[in-house]
Amino acid sequence: MLDRLKDGESIIVAEGFLFEMERRGYIKSGSFVPEVVLDHPEVLRGLHEEFAHAGSDVVLAYTYYAHRHKMRMIEREDELEKMNREALRIAREVADKTGTLMAGNICNTTVYQNGNQEATAAAKAMFKEQIEWAVEGGADFIVGETFLEYGEAALALEAIKEYGKGLPAVIMVAANTTDKLVDGVGVAEACKKLEDAGAAIVGLNCFRGPGTIMDLLKEVRAVCKGPLAALPVPYRTTKEEPTFFAINVPGTEQRAFPLELQTCLCTREDIAKFAKEAKALGTQYVGLCCGNAPNYLRIVAEEFGKHPPASDYSPEMHKHFVFGSEKIITDHYTKTVKSLITGKA
């Protein structure tokens, strides 16, 4: 990974397993623990393969929220190690099969509390065991992500450096409705500190969509000199509703998160615009987070100049029997039928 970054290459990264598996009926909304790893490993393998087909350069082991606190919540703590090792095994096998990188994954612990030594120790202990399993599982690097507080992000980086056997660390924070994290540290300041502390890549993931993440990314780019990460959620966030927690179902006052977020999905043009802007900013580690799907990721890959296998099946609307322009398509469809089904001449 580091060699590719030094050569100026971009790395396309598929995330978003959590929401996609919930949509497919394999994990529960709310707890969002990756039970699919143990209960339906064949489904997880298939999703990894789909994302690689769509252009992902990384198979991220699905160990997000597969930590001790979450496993205790669903009363499956005794399967913690088994879940992590199985997720890593599947990811490593798919990465080897598709010629991609494989990353271990740690995330916000939901137990960390700034200034609370006991909570900090508990969080670090959870990081330690997941990092050590990732190393033993053959990870090429470790991703630490969706940190709401600088303190927890710094703790995750410290743990990766201490227990990761020299593996590079990608550290991403999650911005809320302001330009500061929960503990009051500015997003750009946090990323600069993390970069200075040894993170190979820093940036933002989750919470914000393409419409509200770019301004913060520009602030980070202004102070960080190394590779930048950008993985927004593919939802139509706005200045008034900057995170996917804040979005309402269009035309209502009903909160969309989490069960009605499909009403707020970005268009493909929204995703292409984000990818163009991210590329222009010099972003090298780029993808999409919660809500991602292979068709979205293919767009990101193509905007970054890649042609993954899925690009062989990119849209060719000029061949559509009503809306196309090919000479073989008759006027009966392009004129008569089109006016009838659209209500427009």
Rank of each mutant, 00 (worst) to 15 (best):
P234S: 13
K239P: 12
L265M: 12
E50R: 05
A125I: 14
A14D: 10
R68M: 06
E42Y: 06
V170P: 05
G211C: 06
L259S: 12
P308W: 04
G115N: 09
A121R: 15
T267S: 15
R268T: 05
Y333N: 07
E269N: 13
A310L: 07
D196Q: 11
T283F: 09
E316H: 15
L194T: 15
C264K: 09
E79S: 13
D140P: 04
P34Q: 00
P315D: 11
P250W: 14
D140A: 13
L47V: 13
P258S: 01
P232K: 07
G25V: 14
A230L: 12
M83C: 10
R92V: 04
G8A: 02
E145L: 08
D39Y: 03
G115W: 13
A190H: 07
E241Q: 12
R24L: 13
Y64V: 00
A122F: 13
K192W: 03
A190K: 04
D39K: 04
E86A: 10
A14K: 05
E149A: 04
F32D: 00
K344V: 11
K279R: 00
G198F: 06
R221D: 13
D78N: 14
F323P: 02
H307A: 15
K97T: 14
K165E: 04
R4G: 05
Y150N: 01
A95P: 02
L228H: 04
T146K: 07
N108V: 03
C224E: 04
K335V: 12
A275N: 03
M73P: 03
S31T: 01
A246C: 09
Y64S: 13
Y112W: 15
L88M: 08
L155T: 10
D96Q: 07
G104T: 11
A256M: 12
G184D: 08
P232C: 01
H332D: 11
E219K: 15
L44M: 06
R24K: 05
K193T: 01
A52K: 11
H40A: 01
V43S: 12
A200K: 07
N84P: 08
G8M: 12
I341L: 05
G203F: 15
C206R: 01
L217Q: 12
D96F: 02
H69Y: 15
G198S: 10
G104N: 01
T283M: 07
N84V: 15
M73D: 02
P34G: 11
K239Q: 12
G16Y: 05
A125H: 04
G226Y: 15
S314P: 07
C266E: 13
E152R: 01
D179M: 08
G16I: 03
I27C: 00
K161C: 05
E303S: 09
E195C: 13
T283S: 09
L60Q: 03
C206F: 01
A293F: 09
R221T: 06
V135Y: 00
S314V: 08
E75G: 01
Y235H: 10
M73W: 03
C191I: 09
T120I: 01
T237K: 05
T177F: 02
P234V: 12
L228N: 00
A256V: 08
V202H: 04
D179Q: 14
N108I: 05
N114G: 06
K218S: 05
T252M: 10
C206L: 07
E316S: 09
G8W: 08
I171V: 14
Y112I: 03
K180T: 09
V322H: 02
P227V: 15
D196P: 06
